[in-house]
Amino acid sequence: MRTRSADAGLVVTTAEGAGAPGQPASALALVGVSAGYGRIPIVHDVSIEIRRGQIVALVGSNGSGKSTLMKSVIGLLPALSGTILLAGLDVTAAQPEARVARGLGYVPQVNDVFNRLDVRENLEMGAYRMRRGQVAGRIDEILEAFPTLKPLIRRNARQLSGGQRKLVAIARVLMTSPSMLLLDEPTAGLAPQLAEEILTTQVAVLAELGCGVLLVEQRVAEAFRVADHAYVLVNGHIYLGGRPAEVIETPGFDRLMLGLDLAVPAPGPSAAPGPGQESAG
């Protein structure tokens, strides 16, 4: 049943209208998604929408379920309930391969490069779905955008520093020019300067090119500076959602970031209007 790929999926028009005039198209929409390991959900009833060109930050304490959510979006974990729409197409039951073929890109938090492959081969794997003739040219383009990788191109990924690895991982995911990108803590363990550069340069440029970005971050301040919209995940539930400036000002935000429930959940966060609507409003 799960082998049916996105090709068999239904084209669904979201409530907001996938291509409503004046608004960029929906890149990714999660509708009431629960996900977890085995049959035990870790993330409950999450609804988020990301439009093309938008950066949405997802923050929360350790163990709040951010990575679990990301894995279920890429398809490495099954969604236990709910619907995942990729550019309006239902991919809830699709394999990760099929989602990638539909323009989804994913940079995991850890194990983000192929250790046994060199940098060039890592980039080639990012272009696995691309026509063979185009790969070499695309690698040259990518290396222009990431000049620091040029001298490392034949270096084994295992021998790279943490920052270099992360750059390789981001460069690899960009090989196919994804329309929707999942970045799971791209700056974890990096020097502040490099982290700043990745967020404000790489990620922001991506969004300008029309890519939707779902960004999981520990560095809340930096993430909120580039994000158009932010959500706070606590114990697998979305507690807050809104413009970054509003979210960070919300009373109790610090408590939520420590993973502590507020006595009363914020009013209907997961039913809150999508970011697209707000940005339009």
Partner: peptide, 16 residues
């Protein structure tokens, strides 16, 4: 084994 990392090292798929 409820909360152990349940990802299969072979298929990359979650195990139930």
């Amino acid at each position: 084994k409820i909360l152990l990392p349940a990802r299969s090292a072979v298929t990359g798929e979650p195990q139930s």
